[in-house]
Design a protein around this nucleic acid. Structure first.
Lengths: 235, 235
DNA sequence: GAAAAACGGCGAACAGGATCGCATAGCGGC
DNA sequence: GCCGCTATGCGATCCTGTTCGCCGTTTTTC
């Protein structure tokens, strides 16, 4: 791993398609944008998607992500394993869809309970608490999200990264408001600060999802990080 | 993923051994602690390990981690694929071994160039720079290390986590010294601070390894995080 | 120095995610 | 009512990490 020779990427550089691969390109279902938009006619597909999702949800809960076989998910959804790939690009995507929804909920919940009168630090802590609560409900959520980001050329990676970005954006908004209110030093770069905050939570969650600390310990660790970031280390 | 039902873990809960599995337990080579310690007489094994490692190294560089097949590695090392498992518990371990070595080198390099007279912030930046340089030489290094930590019950995960811990420990040492020298506020918790610093670097590296920022951008991002942590956000 | 135990290697097999090629169904246009 | 298009489904198959059971070799033990 020492010299920066050439193609060192996690992705198998070659597309590894079977040589015969001539699935007329335009009709390849794996190009995830449906050509015909679903105006209500494609009922069967939507029902299948719902069934797949439900089955995946249940099995993930019962056996964990890695314990839930695609074939088992498919069976419970009442179809063959390969059919799942008509609706989803990878197994991970099944979980990430869920994560995206829960994120949305968490953000909404924050918006509904946010008090702009509170100090910036309080608001940040509140935001991270809501986020924390959502994520610690299911270990796999953080875990598989993280794992996805180790597959740079998979679509699911970009999806997760986008969620991360959105989270950072929301944090930046809070900080921005705080800076305007003279709650924060005027020369902080809110985006960088938001990133730092987010990364601290991410790191704490690694420890939690590996069972090194309890959910509460994770929360404490996040709070400690927030405090340091706000107060600084220097005297 | 909503309710905290029961067994929701990434690991397939059941050990999934084949029912017949009665590999006399005591003689199972997969229990990675060799019964007999290598005092120099077990030459064949050591040569094999070296060949495997070399082959893996080359192929990872040529094709990337995911692109390098175990069968290919084995072939280049002149043995069957299954034999590799006499020496290594998983493919990931092959890369992590490398990472551990490079870490050691990086830490040594830091020790050799560290100037205790410098400010704590300078020393931290130097430490992280050395670390950064080492890690950005190979994208897979950070990537697969991260991926490993998403498999909590695998040995390789614990190995990586230990490396993380050691890094945090070294950072904490620097901070501790800084606190003694009144370089830092006396009431900072050095361990928490070190964790926060480390997590910021980890987060920046996710962005880098996904191609969102250049190596230099990653470095800048880390530095920005360090600055925020030292100076604090509050005015 | 012989039995016991650990080492190290092999080919077959397994599991599980993903892909292929073909078949069918639903819909709009004519 | 037929055509053509896309969506959806299926079973076989691929690929790859990993495990199994077996066996020859080396080291330890007594």
């Amino acid at each position: 791993m020492a010299s920066p020779t050439t193609t060192s990427s996690t992705a198998s550089a070659a597309p590894r398609k079977r040589a015969t691969g001539n699935r007329s390109e335009a009709s390849d279902p794996r190009s995830r944008v449906p050509r015909r938009n679903d105006d209500g006619r494609l009922v069967r597909g939507r029902k299948s998607r719902a069934r797949i999702r439900q089955a995946a949800l249940e099995l993930f809960r019962e056996k964990g992500f890695d314990g839930a076989t695609l074939r088992a998910i498919a069976a419970r959804a009442g179809m063959g394993a390969s059919s799942i790939y008509r609706h989803v690009a990878s197994k991970e995507e099944l979980l990430i869809e869920e994560l995206a929804d829960l994120q949305e909920d968490a953000w909404a919940q924050f918006r509904n309970t946010d008090e702009r009168a509170h100090s910036t630090r309080q608001r940040v802590n509140h935001f991270l608490d809501v986020q924390h609560e959502m994520l610690t409900r299911d270990r796999d959520l953080s875990l598989i999200a993280m794992r996805s980001t180790t597959k740079p050329d998979a679509a699911v990676s970009r999806r997760v990264l986008a969620l991360y970005d959105r989270t950072i954006g929301l944090l930046a908004e809070i900080l921005q408001m705080g800076r305007k209110n003279k709650d924060l030093s005027p020369n902080v770069n809110v985006l960088q600060a938001a990133q730092a905050l987010f990364h601290v939570t991410l790191g704490a969650r690694i420890a939690w999802s590996n069972g090194l600390v309890s959910a509460e310990g994770c929360r404490k660790s996040i709070q400690a990080g927030v405090n340091i970031l706000f107060e600084g280390l220097e005297k």
